[in-house]
Amino acid sequence: MGGVEVTKIVTSSDPRLLHVLRGVVRYRAQEAGFEESDAEGLAMAIDEAASNVIRHTYGNRHDARLALEIWTYPDRMEFVLEDSGPKVEPGEVQPRPLEDVRPGGLGTFFIKSFVDECSYEENFPAGNRLKLVKYFARKVSASDESPD
């Protein structure tokens, strides 16, 4: 993969353990150089992603497998959340419009708010691998660069 695998956590899909994931993500993100607010956002993104797995992929089963890998690169951190549930159709995971005020539906919105990239690994054979990427400094796209 070319990076340094700093942390891998394998746990059960028990909501009581979500605070452990948040704590590790906060700690590793700040240690890697993110500001406290970014680290808190990353902790929330991973928490929401894991909660989605517990609720939707595992149907609130608390004894299934949930694994988190945290990779640190010179320019970014990657958080890979792996489950062994049924395949998720990425198109079905969409945030609801904010003007539609109702209980629920904000988890995906928060995930996408706090990371720069969010994608499922297409060729993972069993289960799902959701990769969340946060750059230390936002990438500058070609359209953002103005010629002198």
Binding site: M44, D47, E48, S51, R102, P103, G104, L106, G107, F109
Partner: peptide, 16 residues
């Protein structure tokens, strides 16, 4: 110290 989308959903439900 922390609230996630399920907590916010609970507050929205309370409001409703």
């Amino acid at each position: 110290g922390y609230i996630d989308s399920s907590g916010i959903a609970t507050l929205v439900e309370g409001l409703q």
